[in-house]
Computed example of a mutant assay.
Amino acid sequence: MKMSAERESVGFVGVGFMGQGMARNLLDKGFPLTVLGHRNRKPVEELVAAGAAEAKSARELARRSRIIFLCVTGSAQVEGVLKGENGIIAGAAPGTVVVDCSTSDPMVTVRLAQELEAAGLHLADAPLGGTPAQAALGKLSAMVGATPEVFARIKPACEAWAEKIVHVGPAGDGHKMKLLNNFLSMGYAAIYAEALTLGQKIGITPQNFDSVIRGGRMDCGFYQTFMQYVLQRDRDAHKFTLANALKDVRYLEGVANTVGVANPVGNAVKNSFATAVASGRGEDYVPMLSDWIAGLNGTSLTER
């Protein structure tokens, strides 16, 4: 297949729940793709079978790529893959763009953007909105922080896996917006869990609760995936761990502290997740917070 001028070579680090679908869409849209090997071999092998190349190190991946997407846990992992003798910076040609799709600390993102510019490289942040199922369909959203020139360059590749792309502002602004977005979503999760528990204790079952909320003004996509677990016990309805959710609301707390903003609601949300994670439930998914809150209050949402 002859590649158009827009089809720059792409590297992808982090082919997990979200990354595998994103990477597959890049392949399907004609982008030459290199992925970084991972201890979970299944997604890597599936992508290689579909036409991707595999790199053994981030440095090797950078040598093969002009745009590199990172879809890892957070800022610590981003720095880890960028730096060191086998990192991206060591292998990247001048002008290479690194696009951080993780949910990272925006203060760290701004610093890394400056460090990469000094090395002749560019950093954009493009955190994600959506679920792994939407990633597989190429229907994610992205909130992008980048210069106008870098945004124009990465947009065709982002369009391979996103149906909504918003250029929020310069590097770091995407991650700032993502923390606000996740504050809303994790806040809803904490409220849903508490409301469902209270309802169960006073005789309003989750089924009755849902019959009122669904289709009304308080309904939304996040509510629907949350309740898909509560009502159907579908563990994979929203595959985002409580540990990752806690990381995000802690980042939000750090940003609020940096600018001197009181965020008492944010701290309440953080503590709902922190108690669940401290109890050993960090690998549970976000809708399963409802079971934890119900259990703390001596009830179960599966009881009729």
Rank of each mutant, 00 (worst) to 15 (best):
A195S: 15
R217H: 12
L70R: 11
V265C: 02
G172V: 03
K239D: 09
M22Y: 02
L26C: 08
D125Q: 01
L121H: 10
T275E: 14
E6Q: 11
F12Y: 07
G95N: 02
K176H: 13
L112G: 09
C71I: 02
L246N: 05
Q77H: 13
Q134S: 14
G95P: 07
V144Y: 09
V97I: 15
R64L: 15
Q20S: 14
A50G: 01
P132E: 01
F31M: 00
G87D: 13
V110L: 08
L70T: 15
K239Q: 12
K247F: 08
R233A: 04
G199D: 06
R217I: 15
I191R: 10
V255N: 08
K29D: 14
I88K: 06
V259E: 08
L180R: 02
R24F: 09
I165N: 06
L128A: 13
H38S: 15
I293M: 00
V48F: 04
K270T: 06
E45R: 14
N182C: 12
V97K: 05
A146V: 09
P106D: 00
F151K: 01
T103R: 03
V48A: 09
L26Y: 00
A23N: 01
R7M: 13
G120A: 03
V269Y: 06
E79I: 02
Y192I: 03
N86L: 09
T258H: 11
A237R: 07
M186A: 13
A49M: 09
G199N: 11
L180E: 10
T34Y: 01
R63M: 08
G298E: 02
Q232W: 09
K139F: 03
H167W: 15
N263S: 14
F222A: 14
V265S: 04
K270C: 00
E79W: 04
M3T: 04
D284I: 09
L70S: 09
L301C: 06
K83Q: 11
S4I: 07
V108C: 10
A157Y: 00
K139S: 06
E194K: 10
R39F: 07
L70K: 10
A189R: 03
A93M: 09
S290C: 12
E115N: 01
A133Q: 14
M143D: 03
W161K: 00
Y251V: 00
V269Q: 04
R66T: 10
E117W: 11
